[in-house]
């Protein structure tokens, strides 16, 4: 009988993400052979950008990421799965999102982390808007077709 899927930890927060603490929490058991993490950062867009503003849909953002993370935990034999996503103003160089997947073997952890990011990009209700160095508010960041294609590939695997 397959072991019960791990219950993922999902947090939506305004403050900084303590990545070292997340990795320590994911790796603290003798059952773990590898932890794969992805952290996404705010670019400065060639020096133009003062900050990114992340709007989210409170309530649905947590639930949608929990649904995606539960799918990952069903599909791969994970021992831990943490997903943290910020909202509000994020400065260039600061982290926006952290995904960490732990497993007995590396392949499951790599694939689950990649799956989580691809789905989070196209399904988690967050929207980015640029705040520019010249004091103006720029436009809403447009979604990319390549993100949809990246999520779709998991249906074919």
């Amino acid at each position: 009988m397959a072991p019960e899927p791990v219950v993922p930890l999902v947090r939506i927060l305004a403050g900084r993400i303590e990545m070292a603490a997340e990795i320590a929490a994911l790796s603290g058991s003798g059952a773990v052979g590898g932890v794969v993490t992805f952290s996404g950062y705010c670019r400065d867009e060639g020096g133009r950008l003062e900050a990114l503003e992340l709007e989210h849909y409170p309530g649905m953002a947590e639930r949608e990421i929990e649904r995606i993370a539960a799918q990952a935990a069903e599909r791969w034999p994970l021992t831990g799965c943490h997903v943290l996503h910020r909202y509000g103003l994020v400065k260039p160089g600061e982290e926006i999102v952290f995904v960490g997947c732990a497993s007995a073997h590396r392949q499951a952890a790599f694939e689950a982390a990649s799956f989580l990011m691809d789905y989070l990009k196209t399904r988690a209700p967050f929207w980015k808007r640029e705040h520019l160095k010249d004091g103006t508010t720029g436009g809403w960041v447009e979604s990319k077709d390549t993100d949809s294609a990246a999520a779709d590939r998991w249906h074919r695997l």
Binding site: G40, L54, H56, Y57, M60, R63, E64, H85, I96, V97, M117, L120, K121, T122, R123, A124, P125, F126, W127, K128, W140, V141, E142, S143, D147
Partner: peptide, 24 residues
């Protein structure tokens, strides 16, 4: 929960409208 445009509204309490998402 995400829905398609062809889906019924049914007894929806809260319906959200938004652009394609750009998180991550």
């Amino acid at each position: 929960e995400h829905v398609d445009h062809a889906d019924p509204i049914g007894a929806a309490r809260e319906v959200a409208l938004f652009p394609p998402m750009t998180g991550g």
